[in-house]
């Protein structure tokens, strides 16, 4: 691999990204075996350092590390010394003293994983599991993985991402990774929820969802927090749903092969109706399953990649 940490989806060139996705494809099979475990990372320590609650992401990383036989330490800011005012630096030094080989970081502040890696407070590989409103690269990888399984090679595919792009780390990472993989990305949002400077991103933008549906191979709906309404990003939840929500009439205007995605957790009735969320073309539950395989691939390649590809021999344990 050409990287030692995974801080941004932009760290990955096309070769790296494809390698992660291909590795995840091989590892996905592990989950369907009676014994869901490989010995690859035996004796290695993976710390899940979560400064922000995210049970979904944490258990996904935990399952991924355990299936590779790594020792997993879960460090949650709640109830730990962090809530008593311990600094990021001291927390990192503590983990370093414990011999963490990889640190999976979730943090409410943009750039915290970057800081952890670049300030050299830990020697472990730092994996960004979502930082503030910056990035969430493994989410983008699992999204790309899911799309690839349904749509094939993503080169030239049209992906529409809808919602609160301004505050979305998922959108940022997806825009970067999908561009690397050759897909055409359209971000759809009210003008208030597109960041200043978005015209310099490798994407198209639109304020109108309806005009962005007919060519879409995949539509990804982003979570919209109702509190954005109080900051005047849009007038009301109902108006948002009418203009930017995915409902059955809009679903019916998608091409037949198109899939519906959502990084979760969903606000049913806000950005997506219950009917669409549970529709046969929705791959939302599959995204969760694929998350484990993709995170296994990332851990495997960052920590054990030098040992070679996972083989069926290893898998027989």
């Amino acid at each position: 691999m050409t990287f030692t940490h995974l801080l941004s989806a932009g760290d990955l060139d096309r070769t790296d990204a494809i390698r992660i996705l291909d590795t995840a494809e091989e590892l996905l099979g592990v989950a369907s075996r009676p014994i869901k475990k490989l010995p690859t990372l035996r004796g290695r320590t993976v710390v899940n350092l979560f400064f922000e609650d995210s049970t979904r992401t944490r258990i996904s990383f935990e399952a991924a590390a355990k299936r590779l036989s790594a020792d997993v330490i879960n460090f949650s800011a709640k109830g730990s010394s962090v809530s008593k005012g311990e600094s990021l630096k001291d927390t990192a030094l503590t983990l370093q003293a414990m011999g963490a080989d990889a640190v999976v970081v979730r943090h409410q502040h943009s750039g915290a994983p970057h800081r952890l890696a670049k300030a050299k407070w830990t020697n472990g590989a730092v994996i960004n599991a979502g930082d503030g409103t910056h990035e969430h690269p493994t989410q983008a990888l699992l999204d790309a993985f899911t799309m690839r399984r349904h749509l094939g090679d993503l080169e030239g595919k049209n992906i529409t991402i809808v919602g609160d792009v301004l505050h979305s780390r998922v959108a940022r990472s997806n825009a970067l990774l999908l561009d690397t993989l050759g897909a055409n990305v359209t971000l759809v949002a009210p003008p208030t929820l597109l960041p200043v400077g978005v015209e310099k991103w490798p994407v198209d933008t639109s304020y109108d969802l309806d005009s962005s549906l007919e060519k879409a191979d995949a539509v990804m709906m982003l979570r919209v927090q109702q509190e954005r309404m109080n900051a005047a990003f849009f007038p009301s939840a109902r108006e948002y749903s009418r203009r930017y929500g995915l409902d059955t009439p809009r679903l019916n205007r998608l091409p037949d092969h198109a899939i519906v995605m959502h990084p979760g957790p969903m606000n049913r009735g806000m950005e997506i109706t219950a009917d669409v969320a549970d529709h046969v073309r929705s791959v939302i539950v599959e995204q969760v399953t694929n998350g484990v395989a993709v995170r296994m691939a990332v851990l495997y390649l960052l920590l054990g990649g030098a040992a070679g590809e996972p083989t069926s021999e290893e898998g027989t344990e």
């Binding site: 943009s110 750039g111 409103t133 910056h134 991103w201």
Partner: peptide, 18 residues
């Protein structure tokens, strides 16, 4: 606000100071 509002604040996910 955390940094100058511009293309970079959008990219870095830091609240812009316009």
């Amino acid at each position: 606000a955390q940094m100058n509002e511009g293309p970079l604040s959008g990219e870095l996910g830091l609240t812009g100071w316009p």
